[in-house]
């Protein structure tokens, strides 16, 4: 998975997820989830990282199952199979399973793709203007700093004997001031390194869709369609 072209992988996985949402087959959801886990394992994705992404998804999926169980629509969607006579269980499994299917796909993409390569590929392959591509990379790179700043601001409110909610305007204000300042500094720094408003630049990294990449983008959703039809 790691060697696939990031743009092709993105669209392949997105198409698979969209196709998945058209079917109402619990086994298909779980099948896709299992396939993602297998693919991730083959790509040597660290288990710890995978769990960090999948656990919150699992939590929400469980919540969703119970919601569907308690407040299910009257009729079950899709074809009944003999296994589940109770429409509520069926619907719950469908919703929870679909979420896990999405989460598996998302995890597979995130953990097998170098983020900066993905954005670079958007720039070279999809002609996303360089301003947007490198602007995103620059902003994304400020995340650790922003997270520190957020907790620092919260402690400075506490140190002044104030209570501030997670998104209270008073708390957001210093952070927004910094966001504006930082973005200006960053833009100045990038421009002083020759980053221009035009898209004239050379490309050190090459991104091209090879046959295998296109095959993935087409075959992954196609496989889900076939499995869906067969299972349904």
């Amino acid at each position: 998975m790691r060697r696939l072209n990031p743009v092709c992988k993105f669209f392949g996985i997105l198409a698979t997820a969209v196709v998945l949402s058209l079917f109402y087959v619990p086994m298909l959801n779980l099948g896709v989830f299992a396939a993602c886990l297998l693919a991730a394992a083959c790509s040597r994705v660290p288990l710890r990282h995978a769990c960090a992404i999948l656990l919150p998804a699992l939590l929400i999926a469980v919540g969703m199952f119970f919601s569907a169980y308690h407040f299910s629509a009257d009729t079950a969607m899709g074809a009944h199979s003999g296994m589940f006579t109770d429409a509520r269980v069926w619907n719950g499994l469908l919703l929870a399973g679909r979420l896990m299917g999405f989460a598996g796909l998302g995890m597979l993409f995130t953990l097998t793709t170098n983020q900066i390569d993905f954005i670079r590929a958007l720039n070279t392959q999809l002609k996303l203007p360089a301003r947007f591509a490198y602007g995103i990379i620059a902003a994304w790179g400020m995340f650790p700093r922003m997270a520190r700043e957020y907790s620092k601001t919260r402690s400075s409110f506490r140190a002044r004997g104030l209570r501030a909610g997670f998104v209270s305007p008073a708390l957001l204000l210093p952070l927004l001031v910094k966001s504006v300042r930082w973005s200006e500094s960053m833009a100045v720094a990038m421009e002083s390194k020759g980053f221009g408003e035009t898209d004239t630049r050379s490309h050190y990294y090459e991104f091209r869709a090879k046959a295998a990449d296109i095959a993935f983008a087409v075959l992954a959703p196609a496989a889900v369609v076939m499995a869906g039809v067969w299972l349904g």
């Binding site: 900066i116 790179g141 960053m186 720094a189 002083s192 020759g194 408003e197 035009t198």
Partner: peptide
């Protein structure tokens, strides 16, 4: 002078070491 040409003439180094890199 457009930035892509100006950089070869004039380069800047800033007070804050943190806010001048856009890559990893």
């Amino acid at each position: 002078i457009p930035p892509e040409r100006r950089a070869a003439l004039i380069g800047m180094m800033f007070q804050n070491p943190d806010l001048q890199f856009c890559m990893d």
